[in-house]
Design a protein around this nucleic acid. Structure first.
Length: 466
RNA sequence: UCCCCGAUAGCUCAACGGUAGAGCGAUCGGCUGUUAACCGAUAGGUUCUAGGUUCAAAUCCUAGUCGGGGAGCCA
């Protein structure tokens, strides 16, 4: 079957064109009686809009099939594009043939011709892409993914696939999922009674990666500028609208680059993504602005046009201290900024993305480069309104002796990271990078309130259906 | 993991100690072009689970399960 995408039919085809479209029925309006006629709105996922198929009584299967159609049925319709007699659409398809490809029992099909809550649709995750919202989210997510590759490829960055299974049990970020083929009912034991992981698949303990950064650094220190784009796993028991146990992360890493260059790239990067969404997903973005969050288009436009605010952690503490606001968590130099502090800065003080830099060393991981003041490290967080931290990055510690010292202070064994330290032994260079959460970016771009609704099959504590 | 809130028809909700209701959806019928169509009728519920209080529990109490929001952790 040669089919025309509904997107193309609506955008480019002149009235009179003969074509075939195929998709899933969204709504049906039947007229029975003496002058029967059916209106079938079809969606094929190529765009948000549906194509109205007008089915005249002359169709040979009109009574036997067409008038029995309901939401969810798949059909292929052949006919001529005509100017619509009704309001609500410029053109419609006057069907000369309407083939029912697959029925959907109206009594049991879960996606009704009505509004559903996102909570309900999460339990129908296999069918929710057939709704307006999830179709739009999926197309925007796709556009963002493409824009990410485009941004890096245009700048000569090399796409690197870092391992998903890792043996480093402490990459400095969160709890990890164990990967094992051992039979939990018959665990092999060492003479001391511990589990003998030497008998496991890899001959040692292994986990799902929480970050490709360390491996990314090794390729940056050879290829120059690289980026990763892959799944990431965190076994934290986080139950919030901003956390997933499995999510996608983008991690660029640049050799011969300091923290300022890192921040420059992060800002350019986000602007590229949001500009791409605004120009390439107009229909879907208009939908989000109308039904999900009235401010999304204005917000993205504003971000794409204005420079990000940059200030140090120390300056931020100063602003927060002098704000005169009463905080649930007290402000003190050396402590982590709380959600309320970050939101105040990005939403109320500056009302745009804020890049915070140079955090106290004690609240940041070992690999971040120590500043000359002896108290802070070359870290940066990019904060955006509503979501909070969307990017976290740093300049990496490239001095061997300093790095070894920092590892020891973090109770890490340098010999476990021999290959990471080799980068500093042989031709070390200053380098920097950051991590961007794909789902948080999609959330921010669409205005969707819950991260579980911007990934096809969310994995969260206690939930891995589908 | 902590703190709140919730669970009643397929869906969204009402009933707040006295025999369980609406809208939408579904089914059947009607309607000369509709727009989540409209009009009429019909069907549909061990009120999340297990205990308890009471003459009487959807309603009050206890525990659990699941869901949502906030916090922490972070992307």
């Amino acid at each position: 079957m040669k089919r025309t995408l509904i997107k193309d039919a609506l955008a480019a085809m002149p009235v009179g064109t003969e074509l075939t479209v195929a998709g899933w029925v969204r709504t049906v309006r039947n007229h029975k009686g003496t002058h029967p006629l059916s209106f079938v709105n079809l969606n094929d996922g190529s765009c948000l809009a549906t194509l109205q198929v007008v089915a005249p009584a002359a169709l040979e299967n009109f009574v036997s099939e067409v008038q029995r159609l309901s939401a969810g049925c798949s059909v292929a319709a052949t006919g001529r594009l005509v100017a619509s007699q009704g309001k609500g659409q410029a053109v419609e398809l006057l069907a000369s043939r309407l083939r029912v490809v697959g029925w959907a029992d109206a009594e049991t099909y879960p996606v009704q011709q009505k509004h559903h809550t996102f909570e309900f649709l999460r339990a129908q995750a296999h069918l929710r892409p057939r709704t307006n919202t999830f179709g739009a989210v999926t197309r925007v997510r796709n556009a963002i993914s493409f824009a990410i590759h485009e941004f890096f490829q245009q700048r000569g960055f090399v796409y690197v696939n870092t391992p998903i299974i890792t043996a480093s049990d402490c990459e400095g970020a969160g709890q990890m999922f164990r990967v094992s083929t051992l039979d939990p009912a018959k665990l092999p034991r060492t003479p001391e009674g511990n589990v003998n992981f030497a008998e496991d698949f890899f001959g040692r303990q292994t986990y799902l990666t929480v970050s490709g950064q360390l491996e990314g650094e090794t390729y940056a220190c050879a290829l120059g500028n690289v980026y990763t784009f892959g799944p990431t796993f965190r076994a934290e028991n986080s139950n919030t609208p901003r956390h997933l146990a499995e999510f996608w992360m983008i991690e660029p890493e640049m050799a011969f680059c300091d923290l300022a260059g890192d921040a420059d790239l992060a800002e350019e990067f986000l602007k590229h993504i949001f500009t791409a969404v605004l120009t390439r997903c107009r229909e879907d973005m208009a939908f989000f602005a109308e039904h999900i969050d009235k401010t999304v288009i204005d917000t993205l436009t504003h971000i794409a046009a204005s420079p990000f605010e940059r200030l140090s952690y120390t300056q931020a503490i100063d602003i927060l201290t002098r704000s005169g606001k009463s905080w649930e968590y007290p402000i003190a130099w050396g402590g982590d900024l709380q959600t309320e502090h970050e939101r105040y800065l990005t939403e109320e003080v500056f009302n745009k993305p804020v890049i915070l830099t140079d955090y106290p060393a004690q609240i940041k991981p070992f690999y971040m480069r120590s500043n000359d003041d002896g108290k802070t490290v070359a870290a940066m967080d990019v904060l955006v309104p509503k979501i909070g931290e969307i990017i976290g990055g740093s300049q990496r510690e490239e001095r061997l002796d300093v790095l070894v010292e920092k590892m020891k202070n973090s109770h890490l064994r340098p010999e476990d990271y021999w290959w990471y330290l080799d980068l500093r032994r042989y031709g070390t260079v200053e380098h920097a990078g950051f991590g961007l959460g794909l789902e948080r970016t999609v959330q921010f771009a669409t205005g969707m309130a819950n991260i579980r609704d911007v990934i096809p099959y969310p994995r969260t504590p206690g939930s891995a259906e589908f």
